[in-house]
Design a protein around this nucleic acid. Structure first.
Lengths: 194, 194
DNA sequence: CGCGACGTTGATTTGCCTCAACGATTGTGG
DNA sequence: CCACAATCGTTGAGGCAAATCAACGTCGCG
């Protein structure tokens, strides 16, 4: 039932069958309909999700009604509002389903308990956040130093499957441009590659 | 000698005197002259620095010779190229001193040993990276969704001491604008507040 | 003293946005 | 299952934010 989940952990950590059992007891499987809101900004993010099917997005809403997509979470990705989840404060971001989605969830309290029972889990999440930290540093410098055209180019190269799967509107909100301008970029690309 | 360092750890973790001793044995104090390069892109980042005096900057250089400042590290901040430090790969970022700087350093290998001797250190760094992760998510959405003017406004409010201490050139490279444009923004602000 | 880095200012250009109109696609209620 | 509405993507016109290029004063430093 939770194979993908434990395979993901196994990338950085060896768990005994007993430990897997302890963890399994705290997991549950959730399903979300397309466009369903998983976490609304302002709520507390009480669960951490590991996506096994479909795709979630983490995003921030702005006063003017627009949104910035922070992260797409297809199969094998982790989703949560980190600050809210770990410190119990209201979340500043939201989570919603881009497709019909299945995810394995674990509650914040339960994870805290598991950190105590299985201290090496700290190691797993240390590495997970460490990698994410690095990933966002890179995206930040990209955002600050390159044109939308190049950012789109890199996105399609790095995530070719996502760039087909996700609507342009949401890709635009991920790149930080308007859908109108993304459309212009796409047109340009077709011409220049012809 | 390492008071600031252990005070920083104590924010998230209680260490016994013995543990502090074990850690102290792996630390060393380094000094860097103003403008000295601490880590050049392409090298391996073998040490993690905790700044006790002065200020470092983590930055990325681009092909055209320009730079983006990722992070300023004044007293009480941690500096490293995370990916290079933790995985031993060549670093994609550089570190340099903005001022004459003192920092406590620890070697990657030694930290790995300490993770084994004192597993709860994993917890400390898990929390450190978790917070950094969240910080960069926020900066990313800021960079993607707001004007340079607002970003500068927020920077000066959030880090008033840094905004006096650091040259406009480097602040511009942190905000992702040219020094010329930052100068224009500053002029605008003076006028509008008058 | 003189040179080079820094910050300012102005003129011009470019990247991206806004607004608006239009097919095409999706989804939904009758 | 169809009809209609809503959302999405495209295209064009015009505007604003920020870059580029260039010139100049100032300051720190050799």
């Amino acid at each position: 039932m939770y194979e993908l989940f434990f395979q993901n952990i196994a990338k950085h950590l060896q768990l005994s069958a007993i430990e897997e059992g302890q963890i399994s007891g705290k997991l549950s499987l959730k399903t979300f309909a397309k466009n369903e809101v998983v976490l609304a900004a302002g709520e507390r993010c009480k669960e951490l999700y590991f996506v096994t099917k479909g795709c979630l997005r983490l995003f921030q809403s702005h006063e003017n009604g627009e949104e910035t997509n922070i992260l797409f979470c297809p199969e094998n990705w982790w989703a949560s509002d980190v600050m809210s989840f770990s410190r119990g404060v209201p979340s500043s971001n939201s989570i919603a389903a881009l497709e019909a989605t299945e995810a394995i969830s674990i509650k914040a309290n339960d994870l805290e308990d598991l950190y105590i029972q299985i201290p090496k889990l700290e190691r797993f999440f240390r590495i997970l956040y460490q990698n994410g930290f690095s990933l966002y540093q890179r995206r930040l410098t990209l955002a600050l130093s390159t044109s939308a055209e190049l950012r789109y180019e890199l996105f399609t190269k790095q995530y070719p499957s996502l760039s087909n799967r996700i609507s342009q509107k949401h890709i635009a909100a991920y790149l930080g441009v308007t859908p109108v301008f993304l459309s212009i970029l796409r047109k340009r690309r077709v011409r220049s590659s012809a």
